[in-house]
Design a protein around this nucleic acid. Structure first.
Lengths: 195, 195
DNA sequence: CTTGCACATGTACGGCTCTACATGTCAAGG
DNA sequence: CCTTGACATGTAGAGCCGTACATGTGCAAG
C-alpha cells in the first residue's frame, strides 16, 4: 500500500516518468522505502487505471511522464492524515542478532565490528547528502525541508544501530568463559516453550 | 528467506510447536520480525520437507512439536556466518515523513507529537521487557544474553525515532509563514526530475 | 452438563516484492 | 559507420506476507 502513496507523493511535486521515479527511489528514498523499477511501472499503470494519475506527456524513447490528478492528490493527503499507522519494521541484521548465541565468540566479534562499520558508513553517506540540503543547494522550500527531515530519520536509525553494534561488541555479555563446555549452572527455562 | 531462519533459530533452543513459535514471534520477536501464524505453519511444513526440522512429538489438540535436525542447525549457522547481509529496512512512518510538506502545519504538528509518543511508548514497553532479562529472571545463559542484545537494538531504534519526532516537531523547519500563499521566492528545481 | 475460552492448526486468496529476462531508442565516441 | 552505453519500459514467474475464513479440542467455571 505504501509504494502507491510514495509514488503519488513524488508526483505531487510535479510530472515525472517511471524512470525518473525509479531513480528517485534508488537515491534518497532508497533508505526509507526500497523499490525496484518493475514494481514502479506496474504500480503506475494501476494508478492510472484508478484515475489517480494521468499521462502528462510523451518524450523520446517511449518516455511517458505522468501527472497527479485531483483525486490522486486527495488520496495522498488522506493517507497522510490517516490514523492507522503501521509502526512495525523488519531488519534482517536485527533478527540475526537474536540468534547470536549460536555463533562462535570470535566470529561474532568480527561480525559486530563489521556491522558497526556498515551502519556508520551508511549514516555518513546520508549525512553528507543531508549536508547538501542544509547548505541550501536544493532550495529551502517546504518540500525540501520536509525531505531533509525524512533523511534525518534514516540517519538517526543508522547511527543508533552503529552505536548499538559497538555497545554489543564492547559489553562482555557475549564473552562466555564457558562457551563450548556444559552450561555453567541452572538456567531458567525459556519463557514460552511449554511441552 | 528470513522467517525460515528465524524459525530454525528458535528451534535451536529446543522443540516447539507452530503455536509456540507463533507466540514467540508475537511477543519479543515481534519488534524484530513480525510474523503471522499462517506463514509460520506453512514454513514449518516446508522446513520439514527439506529435512531441516522433523516432528518431535504429538500432544493434545493435534499439537505437533518439531525438533531441529543437524542439517537445520548447520543451515542456521551458515546463515549467521553469511557475508551478504541486507541492511535495508522499510518503515511506513519514515516514508510518510518524506511527504510531510503536503500536510497542513497544524495537522503535522499533531501527527509528530503522536508519533513521538508512540515510539517512546513502544521503547518503554521493550525496555521493561529487557529489564526482566537484566534482573536475571530468565537466567543468564548465553542465549538469554544474546536475545537481550537483540531487544536492545529495537529499543534504540524506537528511542532514536522518538527523539527524531521531537526534533522534527521543535525545529522550525516546518513552520512556514508562507504556507498557503504563493512560493516565497525562487526555488531550485528538484535534483532529479528532468523533462 | 453445558457454555465459553484458550488451545491448535490449517486453507484460500490476493497483494506485494524481487530477480531474471526481454526489447527497443537515442547520443556520442572512435 | 559502428559500437557502446545510458535511457526507457516492460513481462514472467516465484516467493513472501497478511487477512479472512474454517475447523476442531480440551479445560474450567458456573
Amino acid at each position: 500500500m505504501s509504494l502507491r502513496h510514495g509514488l503519488l507523493g513524488l508526483l505531487a511535486e510535479g510530472p515525472a516518468s517511471g524512470y525518473d521515479l525509479a531513480r528517485r527511489f534508488q537515491e534518497g528514498l532508497n533508505s526509507l522505502w526500497p523499490a525496484q523499477h518493475p514494481q514502479i511501472y506496474s504500480e503506475l499503470s494501476r494508478l492510472a487505471s484508478a484515475g489517480l494519475i494521468e499521462v502528462d506527456s510523451h518524450g523520446p524513447r517511449r518516455r511517458t511522464a505522468y501527472r497527479i490528478t485531483d483525486a490522486g492528490l486527495a488520496e495522498v493527503k488522506r493517507w497522510l492524515a490517516e490514523d492507522e499507522i503501521d509502526y512495525s519494521f523488519r531488519m534482517e541484521p536485527l533478527l540475526r542478532s537474536f540468534f547470536f548465541w549460536l555463533m562462535e565468540p570470535e566470529d561474532l566479534k568480527r561480525r559486530l565490528a563489521e556491522e558497526q562499520q556498515q551502519f556508520a558508513a551508511y549514516a555518513q553517506t546520508l549525512r553528507s547528502f543531508a549536508g547538501a540540503k542544509d547548505r541550501g543547494e536544493w532550495g529551502t522550500s517546504r518540500r525540501t525541508r520536509a525531505q531533509r527531515i525524512a533523511v534525518e530519520a534514516a540517519i538517526r536509525v543508522n547511527e543508533a544501530l552503529a552505536e548499538w553494534a559497538r555497545w554489543a561488541e564492547e559489553t562482555d555479555l557475549m564473552a562466555d568463559e564457558n562457551f563450548g563446555r556444559q552450561p555453567s549452572g541452572p538456567d531458567a527455562p525459556p519463557p514460552e516453550p511449554k511441552e
